[in-house]
Design a protein around this nucleic acid. Sequence first.
DNA 1: TCTGGGGTCCTAGGACCC
DNA 2: TCTGGGGTCCTAGGACCC
Length: 387
Amino acid sequence: MDAFYASVELLRYPELRGQAVVIGGGRRHQPEVLPDGQRRFAHLRDYAGRGVITTATYAARAFGVHSGMGLMKAAALAPDAVLLPVDFDQYRLYSRRFKAAVAEVVPVIEDRGIDEIYIDLSEVPGAQEAVAGDPLGGVRELAQRLKQAVHEATGLTCSIGVTPNKLLSKLCSDLDKPDGLTLLTMDDIPTRIWPLPVSRINGIGPKASARLASLGIDTIGQLAAADPAWLIDTFGSHYGQWLHEAAHGRDERPVVTWREPKSLSRETTFERDLHPRDDRDTLGPIFTRLCDQVAQDLARKDYVGKTVGVKLRYDDFKIVTRSLTMPSPTRDAAVIRQWAGRCLRTVPLNKRLRLLGVKMESLSRGLGEVVAQEPAASYSLPLFEGL
DNA sequence: TCTGGGGTCCTAGGACCC
DNA sequence: TCTGGGGTCCTAGGACCC
């Protein structure tokens, strides 16, 4: 989906169409409805806090702002951009709508989060046929039908890449945004893929890009030309092998329609950095709330977890994690709270904290019972005991 | 005015077992 | 009488993605 959160917001506030709009931050910058029915929006320059941009309209991106950027930093670049709070419920609603619309056309769908899917067109009748001399005519028509179905169901545009595999489709879906359609065969790889920077490959992030650049490899073509044995020596057997395959556009991963979740977590960044001792009265309830939320999430999805973990981010942004595996799985908030507390006791608590998180791993299916959860708050357990 | 929240996968060392 | 070869599980950290 194109600039998904921002595009959903524009459906609600059409008067903002064409403007620089940024989505992010907390509840505090809700648009205000004036007596004459006009809406007044907050602007980036009014923002104070630690939020980041989740999505920006294309007009906003022209100022150099992008998702993940701190709102304060973005305000320096585009002070007059409209700022809207995130409304996940609304995005989830539109997510369900666009996925349902696609499912009407093609049933084999892999979920890749709120605004992305992979679709397997291999078995779709007509997809492999030429139309009017165009060997890709069948898939082209199918893709157009998908785009139309999504637009009719949501009023939103999407961008599609149709290729022999997931790696290439993901890459191609990005080449013609917004409202794009890119078709590609293996024969097109040298001309259309190899000139692109390596960072366009899903799985080559900032670290690997920088490392490759330092070795004189900037484009996918240069990566494809690199000796696979040397890549393995340099990046390890698994990643090195994968880099070689990816550069040649090879990817055998199937479209997976269902995956068991592996972990479930809640975390929160504080409005100001908190000291483990001086602010323990503030931290305690936050910690308990995170455990309660994790327990509720487990119950809602009907899972139990055997490993409890905590995550801390210090004021210097360094992250520390601790985890412990329990004798038996649970979804009980008080038990989670107790084991998370044990994890916490092994962590150095000499610096201010920026973030606290609680995580459950080694998940297994619950028993289907829908039991009201006793909140951990009703058990008063000391936090950071022994300090 | 730095840098959210929820995930997955990989690596690597150590414990422990046969 | 100087050290095997598997296997699994646990833990911590890190890269990467949406």
